[in-house]
Design a protein around this nucleic acid. Structure first.
Lengths: 211, 211
DNA sequence: GTTGAACTTGACCATACGGTCAGGAATGAT
DNA sequence: ATCATTCCTGACCGTATGGTCAAGTTCAAC
């Protein structure tokens, strides 16, 4: 069967197909976990024959690895908001906003990441030990400096970071639970704003930078 | 092959075996997810032939269902600390302590629960809609009352509850990440105390009941 | 001691899965 | 127009999995 679209070159179609497969894989891995996901289902979601998936990604594991690495990139980009900030209120507030936005826009990716870490990070353990550790220590140092400058309450920087991750990621990973408790409906725009505001209010007040 | 232990009656051994299987299943489901777990591996961990598992639990799903329900019971028990409290500082503080203790003592169970919810709760959706919803609304009402009595800052009760769940559960679900960032070592007793203290400090200050 | 119910288990089965491959179709360079 | 390369896919394969079963063993009641 010839390709439906004629306007694209081969190179473009390769990129399109890879993106299509990665997107489908993200959804399926998020909903079923690595073990529960099947190449056949990913193929169906992507609208491609299974054998075609294996042309672009030789194994299920290589496909999964790519999905996880993509999430990690998004995850790291949210860090920029932290660095560019002048002080704790702005930096941590913007970081919460950014991570809440990721939870809202990439819930599947967040779940894949959570699943990967929960299962002892078989694929990205090296990232945890290098990139993530450096990132964390760097941010902890910034927080520590803010504390020493008297710009926020003295809290353990690492546990503060864990709280930021936990709280924001919760809206993606446990989105189904939240939706159920919300009467079965996804959070509305206003409710998302309320969520962001609540998280920021409690944490920023908790570290003594507002009120 | 005859049973090794001769001191137990049949009824006792039934209970023992069921507990043995459930414990093994909890570990394996936590580490591999429902789809990735195999009855053979659970059997190996339990030290029983696979066919014997199917005698006690007819299907993989029924075994999984039992594991999830057990977790949910533990989860609900932590609620008592909330109810018996006289005010927000005591109630929420004790609830955080209780849930942190669950994360520490039952990390596998917490992961199974998280995994179940992340995958849209195929098994315990009815619990979410009934028991959990009632529990949540009841606790939210208590928080609301505390707010109206001027005993804590006006925050959205639901988002406060989500934050409590997220923050405490994070220490179980993302325990591997925390361990890695801790230099590869599990949190020591002192570090667990520090974690509890950090969470309580930030949240209790965040809702205006301390400092 | 006999008997029936509860328990145990090695061997087995059907299915579904990840992955392969041969052969054809489309594409781009010359 | 030719040809090498890339892309596509139905059919296929070996394996591992959830689950079954029949034949046995243990145990408690009488």
């Amino acid at each position: 069967m010839p390709q439906t679209s004629r306007t694209n070159s081969k190179k473009e179609r390769r990129q399109e197909n890879e993106a299509l497969i990665l997107s489908a894989a993200e959804k399926v891995f998020a909903e079923a976990g690595f073990g529960g996901a099947t190449m056949q289902l990913i193929a169906d979601v992507a609208g491609l024959p299974k054998a075609n998936l294996h042309y672009y990604f030789p194994t299920k594991e290589s496909l999964y690895r790519q999905v996880v690495q993509n999430i990690f990139q998004i995850w790291l980009q949210a860090a920029d908001t932290f660095d560019q900030a002048e002080g704790p209120a702005e930096g941590i507030g913007a970081y919460i906003d950014a991570k809440m936005e990721i939870s809202r826009r990439h819930p599947a990716g967040s779940k894949v990441w959570a699943s990967e870490v929960m299962h002892r990070a078989p694929v990205i353990q090296d990232y945890l030990e290098t990139t993530l550790m450096e990132w964390t220590d760097g941010r902890a140092a910034i927080v520590q400096r803010w504390i020493e400058e008297g710009r926020m309450a003295p809290v353990n920087p690492h546990h503060l970071l864990y709280m930021l991750w936990a709280t924001t990621q919760h809206y993606a990973d446990f989105g189904h639970q939240i939706e159920t408790l919300n009467g079965g409906a996804p959070l509305s725009d206003a409710q998302w704003e309320e969520a962001k505001k609540s998280v920021k209010d409690i944490i920023l007040r908790g570290i003594g930078v507002i009120k």
